[in-house]
Each structure stands twice: as structure tokens, then as C-alpha cells.
Amino acid sequence: LGSLGAMLLLLPGAILAEKSPSRKWLVVLSGGGISRLMLLGFAVLPFFLSGESAVMAAIAMKVIMDAFSNLSMPAWTSLTADIVPLAWRGRYFGTRNMFMGIANMLVTFIAGQMIVHAATPLEGYQKVYLLALVLGISSTVFFASIRETQSSHVASQKGLEVYKPRVLLQGLKRDPNFVAFCISQMVWNFSVNIAGPFFSVYQVEVLNSTPAIIGIQSIIASVSGLPAQRLFGTLNDRWGPRKVLLLTGFLIPFMPFVWLLVRSPWHPTPINIWAGFMWAGYSLASFNFLLSISTQETRARYSALYQIAVTLSLAAGSAFGGFLVQHVGYPAIFISSGIGRFLSVFLVWRFVKSAQESPDAALPVLDQPEITTSVKEAETYQNGHEDI
């Protein structure tokens, strides 16, 4: 349901980003407003509902939370690209991701302690949701203080015309570099999710790992990614995101094959160190590359289309991986995932050009020489820990 909501609202989010006179307030009201208010709903839900009805209400609130978060994503991406100068993007997003990683580990520990030491687990979870709400509102207040100059964004007057399937297809035909990048990333994410959802299952079913060991492995990967953010952020600015994408993309596919040699719960430790480090660079480079090959006019649109492509490929990869595990076994998903990742890197190397190499590369805005218009997840667009 969350993936379906994302696909349904990403393009409307791009339309709103192009039509709205203020992308900042679009983000504040949707992702920073309605989405975060659902946290309050989780906190007070046990006072009003219980049992199956409470579960259904929680699912509905989670879908609403994800939907409005995705509605604001194209506006956030477009606004961020205008705010952060091209020459600083690698270091900026690298530093940003590093502090986000530190905050994530710290607040996860705090939340765990709150739940453990509460009178009841239910009370502990309610306190955690209230804490998340307070922190989320604080973040929204700071985001609302960003100065969005009128010169950085002019609302599109084209309306819904550019989003008609025929016009959208024509626009994509004129930008084969973006299409090639999307295809390569669809292959990548499909391949990643062939094995991604099943690494933890493999640790439990085959390696007899305990939840504590799996948690420690997750922390190891997170910590490994922190220094990588600074390193790859600098390399991104010096080399360009395409070279960082190729470097990390070539080194990541070896990891699924190494899982074939794992025999004990602690054997994945070096894999997770390598995964945390390399995934930090890959996620950073893929986001910056999308920014670099899109223009101010197309950025919101491209962000939405890219996310839709990624969402579909991730879902398909999970389904295919589940089929392989059930009918062939774990070695099949490790091998298939590794081969698919190598194929994706080949597609990037052969068909995807950097902004400087592409004839359709974005040109700088003439009245803003310091800010070019050259993108969970990653978040990250990806979360960077698919190998865990």
C-alpha cells in the first residue's frame, strides 16, 4: 500500500512543485505537516481503538504518512538543488548524511531505552511516538525558515500539458541520457531486492543468528558509512557523481557472492563493513547524478519519474527473489543479485553520460551564476543498507 501510494502521488507532487509559487511551503504542509501529524495519531490510537480495528487504523495512518511524504519529495528535491551550489553538493550531502546517520543511531538507542524502561511496552511506544512528533515539528520549523527567493523558482505555466502521456513520452525521447540512467537504476534496484529483503532471514534460518547479533551487524554497517560520507562527498565534487557511481557500483556487486562463503553468525561482519562504506558512496552519487542531469524546469518531473521507476523495480525484485528462495534456494538469489548489479554498472558505463558529456546537459541559470540547474533515500533515496 505504501508503494502504491508513492506511485500515485509522485507525479501529482511534481505537478504541484511546478505550479506552486512556493515549493518550501508545499513541503512544510505535506511532508513536514500532515505526514508528521500521523505520529500523534499513533500515540493516541490505543486510547480509542484496540484489536483488529486498531491495526487497520494504524495501517491507514502509515499509508497517509508515506503518501504525503512522497507528495512533497519532488518539491524538496527541486528546492534543495537550487539552494545547494553544484560545487558543494557532494560535500554538503555527504556531511548531511553523516550527521543523519549519527542522529539515527543515537535516537534509536534512546527510543529503545524508553520502551524497555516504561511501565508497559505500549506506554513506551506511545512516548517514542510523541518524541518523534516533537523532533519532527522542530525540523519542520527550521525548514520553514529557509529563504526561498523568487528568482530561484518560477511557477510553471504549462499546467498539466507536460504530464499528458504523449507529451511526457516525447520529452523523455529528447533526453535519452535520463532514460538510460533510469533503466540502469531499475536494473540495479531490481537486482538489489532479489536478495536484499532476505539477508536477515538467511542469518536467522541458516546461520542461527540471534536478534542481538543482527542488530550489532546493522550498527556496524551504519558506523562504517559515516566516514564514507565525507570521503565520497569530496570525491563527488572532484570527480563528478558519475565516476563515484561507477567506482562504488563496481565494488558493491561482489558482496552477494561473498555471502556464499558465510558459515557463522559473525562471518557477515566484514561484508557489512564493506557494504556500509560503499553503499554510502553509491547512494550519495546516485542522488547527485540525478540532480546534475536535470534542469530547473524538469527536476521535479524527473525526480517523480525516477522514484516511480525505482519503486516498481524494487517491488518486482522482491517478488522475484521470494520466488527463487522458495523454489531454488538462497545461493540462487545471491548469484542473481550479483550478476544483475554488474549488468547495471555496465549500462551506466556504456550508455549513461555525465552532465558535461551529455548534449542535453543542464545549463546554468544566467541570473544565478553560483547555482546551476544541473539528482531516499535515497533515502536515499536508498537507505544504504540493502545488504543487511
Rank of each mutant, 00 (worst) to 15 (best):
residue 100 M to N: 08
residue 118 A to E: 09
residue 140 T to N: 03
residue 108 T to S: 13
residue 131 L to E: 00
residue 119 A to V: 14
residue 91 R to N: 07
residue 125 Y to G: 09
residue 125 Y to K: 09
residue 139 S to K: 07
residue 136 G to Q: 02
residue 142 F to Y: 11
residue 146 I to H: 14
residue 105 M to R: 05
residue 104 N to W: 13
residue 134 V to G: 05
residue 121 P to F: 15
residue 133 L to W: 09
residue 102 I to Q: 10
residue 108 T to K: 08
residue 128 V to E: 01
residue 122 L to A: 15
residue 144 A to L: 10
residue 118 A to V: 13
residue 112 G to N: 00
residue 133 L to Q: 02
residue 120 T to I: 10
residue 136 G to C: 01
residue 133 L to T: 01
residue 98 M to L: 05
residue 129 Y to I: 00
residue 128 V to I: 01
residue 105 M to W: 14
residue 92 Y to R: 12
residue 135 L to T: 04
residue 95 T to K: 11
residue 133 L to K: 03
residue 125 Y to S: 10
residue 92 Y to Q: 07
residue 115 I to Q: 05
residue 136 G to Y: 00
residue 145 S to M: 11
residue 136 G to R: 02
residue 142 F to H: 07
residue 102 I to V: 09
residue 102 I to M: 11
residue 98 M to A: 11
residue 127 K to D: 06
residue 129 Y to N: 03
residue 104 N to M: 12
residue 94 G to R: 03
residue 112 G to L: 03
residue 137 I to Y: 00
residue 110 I to Q: 05
residue 109 F to M: 06
residue 105 M to K: 08
residue 121 P to H: 13
residue 119 A to Y: 13
residue 105 M to C: 10
residue 118 A to Q: 12
residue 93 F to I: 00
residue 108 T to I: 06
residue 139 S to T: 04
residue 131 L to I: 05
residue 93 F to S: 07
residue 130 L to C: 00
residue 146 I to Q: 15
residue 117 H to V: 02
residue 142 F to C: 06
residue 125 Y to F: 15
residue 95 T to Q: 09
residue 128 V to Y: 03
residue 95 T to G: 11
residue 104 N to Y: 11
residue 138 S to W: 08
residue 99 F to N: 02
residue 127 K to C: 05
residue 93 F to T: 05
residue 133 L to C: 04
residue 132 A to V: 02
residue 134 V to I: 11
residue 102 I to S: 05
residue 143 F to M: 01
residue 133 L to I: 00
residue 144 A to C: 13
residue 132 A to R: 06
residue 128 V to N: 05
residue 94 G to C: 09
residue 144 A to K: 14
residue 132 A to M: 13
residue 122 L to D: 14
residue 121 P to S: 15
residue 91 R to S: 12
residue 104 N to T: 08
residue 138 S to V: 03
residue 134 V to H: 04
residue 115 I to W: 04
residue 95 T to I: 11
residue 105 M to V: 09
residue 130 L to Y: 05
residue 99 F to A: 07
residue 140 T to G: 04
residue 128 V to H: 07
residue 126 Q to D: 11
residue 117 H to A: 03
residue 98 M to N: 04
residue 95 T to A: 14
residue 131 L to R: 06
residue 134 V to A: 11
residue 110 I to M: 08
residue 130 L to R: 00
residue 119 A to I: 08
residue 95 T to S: 04
residue 142 F to S: 06
residue 108 T to D: 04
residue 106 L to K: 10
residue 105 M to Q: 08
residue 111 A to T: 01
residue 140 T to Y: 13
residue 141 V to E: 07
residue 145 S to Q: 12
residue 124 G to S: 12
residue 106 L to P: 11
residue 139 S to D: 01
residue 144 A to G: 15
residue 110 I to A: 10
residue 117 H to K: 09
residue 129 Y to A: 04
residue 145 S to Y: 10
residue 113 Q to E: 00
residue 110 I to K: 07
residue 103 A to P: 11
residue 110 I to S: 06
residue 137 I to D: 01
residue 144 A to F: 15
residue 94 G to H: 07
residue 114 M to E: 00
residue 104 N to Q: 08
residue 127 K to T: 03
residue 132 A to I: 02
residue 109 F to G: 01
residue 134 V to D: 00
residue 111 A to H: 06
